[in-house]
Design a protein around this nucleic acid. Structure first.
Lengths: 189, 189
DNA sequence: TTAATATAACTAATGTTATTAGTTTTTGTC
DNA sequence: GACAAAAACTAATAACATTAGTTATATTAA
C-alpha cells in the first residue's frame, strides 16, 4: 500500500496546480488522485468530496488574492496605491487563472467562512481608500467600481474576449486613468 | 412512440430556460430531455451532443445581447447612448443569468462563428461611439473599458459578490458617471 | 394511393465520474 | 510491544454523456 503521506495542504496545492495549468474543468477527483498517486476514494480522507475541495480552493483563492493585493499596496497611497492594486489584481488573474476562476464559479457567499475571506479583500480596499477621506458609503461605491473594472477586464482578457490586436496594457491603463480622473472631477476639489 | 415534433429552436429555447431558471450546471442532456419529454439520446437528432448544445447557446446569447443593446441605443447619442447601453447590458444579465453565464463559460473564441457573433456586439459599440469622433484605436480602448465595467459589475452582482447592503443602482451609476467624466477630462475639449 | 426514403424517436450498452461502505495497513502513542 | 487512529485500498452504486443499432413516423416520389 505504501502511504503517500498527504495532508490538506498538499492536496490543495495539487488541486490549484491542476486548475491553473489544465483549467478548472479538468480539476476532478480523478485527475487530482492521479496527480497525487492515490485512488479517488482516498481523497475523502483529506477533503469533503468535490464540493469540499472546491470550497477549500475558493478560500485559498481569496486568501492569496488578499495577500497579493496587500503586498502591492504597502508603502503607497492614493492614486499610486490604486494603480498598484489594479496591476496586482490583473497579474494575479494571469498567474492563477484557474484558482481565480474557481473563486468565481464555486464561491458560496452564504457560507460564513467564504464571506469572511471575501470580506477581507474588501476591507483591504477600504483601508487603501482611507487617505481620500471619502464618506463610508462613498468608499463602498468606489470599491465596487474598482472591483468591477479589475474583475471585468481581467476575466474578459483571460477568456480571450479582447480579440482585436491592440495593446491590452494600454487599454487597462487608460481605463484606470479615466476612472481616477473621473473620481477627481466628481468629488471635486 | 409518438413523435415530439421538436426542432433546434425548441431545444435551444428549453435549454435557455433551464440555464436561466435552474442555473447553468443544471443544464445537462438529462434535464433537457426530461423537460422536452424525450430520452437523452434523442437529443442527438437536434444537437451535436453537449458541446454542440453549449455552442448553440453561446451563439444565441451573443445574438440576444446584440439585439438588446441595439434596441437600447436607437435614437440616442453620446453619453445618453452609453448610459442606455450600460443599463441594458446589466438588465440583460439580470434577465438571462444562465444564458449569459453560458456565453462566458463555453464560448470558444477560436470558433469563427462565435468570433463573428461576439464581434457583432463590439461592432455595435463602435457605431455608438462614432459621434465622439475618436481615433479608431482610441475607440477600441474605450470599448474595452466599457465592457470591463459592464461585465464586471453585472457578474459580481449576479454572483452575490457585492455583499454590503447599499443600493447597487447607485453604485453602477456612479461608476459610469466617473468613467464618462474621466473620458471628458482626458480627451480634453 | 402507395412505395420508398429520411427523420426522429427508442432501447441497450459502455465509459467516466463521484460517492459510500467496508477492509487493510501503516503510523504514532501509551 | 499493543492499541488506536489515520490513510490508503477494493468493491459497488448512481448519474451522466455517448454510441450503436432498432423501430416507427413523416415526407416525398412514383
Amino acid at each position: 500500500m505504501a502511504r503517500a503521506g498527504l495532508d490538506q495542504q498538499a492536496v490543495l496545492a495539487a488541486a490549484a496546480e491542476i486548475a491553473d495549468t489544465k483549467g478548472v474543468e479538468e480539476l476532478t477527483l480523478s485527475t487530482l488522485a492521479q496527480k497525487l498517486g492515490i485512488r479517488p476514494p482516498s481523497l475523502y480522507n483529506h477533503v469533503h468530496g468535490l464540493p469540499g475541495l472546491r470550497r477549500q480552493l475558493v478560500l485559498y483563492a481569496y486568501a492569496k488574492l488578499k495577500e497579493t493585493l496587500t503586498q502591492a499596496a504597502v508603502g503607497k497611497a492614493k492614486d499610486e496605491a490604486v494603480r498598484s492594486l489594479a496591476e496586482a489584481y490583473r497579474a494575479y488573474v494571469h498567474r492563477h487563472p484557474g484558482v481565480y476562476e474557481a473563486s468565481e464559479r464555486y464561491a458560496d457567499l452564504t457560507d460564513p467562512e467564504v464571506q469572511r475571506a471575501a470580506g477581507e479583500v474588501v476591507d483591504l480596499l477600504i483601508q487603501v481608500l482611507e487617505p481620500y477621506g471619502l464618506e463610508h458609503e462613498e468608499a463602498i461605491h468606489v470599491i465596487r467600481g474598482f472591483r468591477s473594472m479589475a474583475h471585468g477586464f481581467a476575466t474578459i482578457e483571460r477568456s480571450g474576449g479582447f480579440g482585436i490586436p491592440l495593446d491590452l496594457d494600454v487599454s487597462y491603463r487608460k481605463l484606470l486613468d479615466a476612472y481616477l480622473a473621473g473620481l477627481r472631477a466628481l468629488y471635486a476639489k
